[in-house]
Design a protein around this nucleic acid. Sequence first.
DNA 1: GTTATTTTTGTGAGCGCTCTCATTTCGGAC
DNA 2: GTCCGAAATGAGAGCGCTCACAAAAATAAC
Lengths: 338, 338
Amino acid sequence: MSEKKPNIYDVARLAEVSHQTVSRVLNNQPNIRPATRARVEAAMAQLGYQPNPAARSLVTAKSNMLGLLVSDTGLYGPAGMLNAMERSARQAGYFAITVAVRFDSPESWAEGLQHLSRMHVEGIATIALQSEVIKMAAKIMPNIKLVAIDTDDQANRVNSVGIDNLGGGHMATKHLIELGHKKILHIMGPATSSEAQNRRRGYEQAMVEAGLEPATVQGDWTAETGFRIGIELNLELTGYTAIFTANDQLSLGLMKAFNMRGVKVPADISLVGFDDIPESPYFNPPLTTIRQDFNQLGEVAIEMLLSDLAGTKRKKFEALKPNLVVRDSAIRISTSRK
Amino acid sequence: MSEKKPNIYDVARLAEVSHQTVSRVLNNQPNIRPATRARVEAAMAQLGYQPNPAARSLVTAKSNMLGLLVSDTGLYGPAGMLNAMERSARQAGYFAITVAVRFDSPESWAEGLQHLSRMHVEGIATIALQSEVIKMAAKIMPNIKLVAIDTDDQANRVNSVGIDNLGGGHMATKHLIELGHKKILHIMGPATSSEAQNRRRGYEQAMVEAGLEPATVQGDWTAETGFRIGIELNLELTGYTAIFTANDQLSLGLMKAFNMRGVKVPADISLVGFDDIPESPYFNPPLTTIRQDFNQLGEVAIEMLLSDLAGTKRKKFEALKPNLVVRDSAIRISTSRK
DNA sequence: GTTATTTTTGTGAGCGCTCTCATTTCGGAC
DNA sequence: GTCCGAAATGAGAGCGCTCACAAAAATAAC
C-alpha cells in the first residue's frame, strides 16, 4: 500500500551526486558548493525524504533520546515539569521518552529504568524520586548521565536541581511568625519525599530561630489527608493558631474540615500552603502559599543534563528560589488570643 | 572509560553458537534446543548484553515507538491520560515519545508532528486536539495510524475514543432539572474544544427536552474565568437557580465569586461541574460533578491504536460513559423561590 | 601554461541486527 | 545398522546511514 520510503541513495540519484554528499547536506557540513546543496535539498523535498534515525543511531552510537522518569501522579507540579522538559529536550534536538512509574514501588522504578535502558537513552531526568532510583539507574546503566529534580540525595553525588525547599519552608514559617503566631503546626508531605523533608527542616529551623517549639504531623500530598487531619486536630487543647502545610492540597482539605467544624480561616487559624497551584487563589479563603516555578525547574534540569552530556557541565546542584505569595489565609494573630 | 557495548557476535562467541542462534533466542523463536537457549541466555547475562534497538529498527523497518501528542496544559485530565497511555504502550512493548504542544497554536502542532515524523513513530495518539491536527498529521505522515482522544472530528474519519461528553452534559443538566430547577445556565469551555461543544450540546438537549430555554456563557477551563463570570453574573435579573459548568475549575471560580458576593451555594444557587478532579470533594461545598475515568480513556486509546497497527481493529469510535457524582453543591430548589 | 594547494565530491566499509536460504544434526521407522 | 523427514543451527546479505579515506575539481601561485 505505501511505497518504500526514499533513502539517501534515492536522493543522491535524483540530485546526481553521491550519497555522501547528501549526507553532508543532511549534517550541515561545510565545503559544499551552494548550487550542489540546493540541488540536494530540492531532491529531498521532491521525494519527501526523511532521514532514518535508526540508521543514524546505529552508526553514530547515539540514540538522541532522553529518558524522563516521572512518578505517576496527576499532580500539577510534575505535569508542568514534564511539559517543560519535553519542550527543552525537543528544542535541543532530542527526543523524550517518558516513563511513568509508581512513586512508592521499587519494582516499578526498576521496570521503568529497564525500559529506558533498552532504548539506549543518552541521559535520564528523574522527577521527585528518591536517591534509591539513582543508585538503581547506576546499576542498570553504569555510565548513564542523570539529573534529578527534587531528590533526597544529600551526599550530592548526582546532578540535581530543585527549588530551595528548605528556604521555602523557612519563608512560610517566618511569615507566620512575623504575623505574631507562636503555636504553629506543620503538616508534612510523605516521609519518603525529600521535598517534604526539606520543607519540614525549613519549618523547624525557623521555629527554633524564633525560640518556638516545632510540631509536625505526618501527611501526604492529598486534600483527603488534609481533611482527615483537620477533623481530628484538637485546636482547643493544642492551641495552634497557624498551620503550614507541605502543599496546597493539604491546606484545601484542612479548610474544608475547619469549615465543617465552624473553625474560621484565617480568623481562628492561619494557613500557609506550598506550590501555588492554579486553584489556590480560588480557595476559600484564597491561599497564602509558597510559589515554585515548575517550568523553570524543568528547563534548568534539561539544560543541566545536556551540558553534562556535552561535557561542559558547570555545577552539580542548582537550587531555584521559591517565593511567598501572600493572599488571605494567613493574618496577624488577634491580640485577644494567647 | 566505558568499553564498547557487547553485540550479538560477542554473545555468540561466548555461547559457542552462531549469531543467528542468538538472534533466535532474542526473538523467542521456536526450534531451539533448551540447552542451547540456556547457554545463550547465560552468555547474555554474563556480558550484560542488551540488543540495540536502532539496529533492530533498521532491519525490521519498525521503530517500536508511539507518539503521544498532548496539549500543554497541566490539567489533571490530560496528565492522567498521558500516564495511562504511556503505561499501556510500555506493557505492549512500545516506547512512548511524548510531545507537548500548545493547545491553540497550529505552528506548534506542526512542529510537534514533524518531531514525531522524524522519529518514524508507528502510530500517534492525540489528546484533546482539534481535527485540524489530524489533517495535518495525514499530510505530514500519509500512512500514519492515529487515534484521537476527545476530538471534534464529526465526520468520524479517524479512530477516536472519548467519554460521552454529550451524555455527560445531558446527565448533569437532567440532574438539575430533576431537582426542580428551571432557569439553568451553562458555562461552556473553550469554543475550540470539542469536549466543550459536546457538553453544551448535551446541556441544550436536556433543556429542550424539558421544555426549558438553554443559555450559555462562553468560558474556558480555568477557575479564573469562572470567578470573573461569577462576579459579573446578574442573578437577580436573570433568575438563574442553577449552573452547569464545563469543568470543575469553573465551578470553583464561581463558588469563590458567589462567596464574596454573599450568594450561597447551594441554597441560592446550585452548581454541577464536570471531571471530578481530586480536589472537588473538598470544595466549599463539595462539588456535584460528572466523573470521567481518565485512566481508562488512555488505556482504551492505546488499545485501539495497537489493534489498528496490528490490523485487527474493531471499531472506529468508542465512547466511555461518564457518571454523576452527587455531592453537596446542587440541591432541590426551594419551593419558596420561583 | 605548470604545479602546489585547497575545496569539493566520491568510494567502500561497517554499525548490529534480522532476513532468506543452506547445511548439519537428530529421531525414529524399517 | 541405513535412510528419511523434521528439527536445529549456520552463513551471507543487506537495512540506511556516517566514517575514514581517496579522488577529482577548482583555485592560487608562479
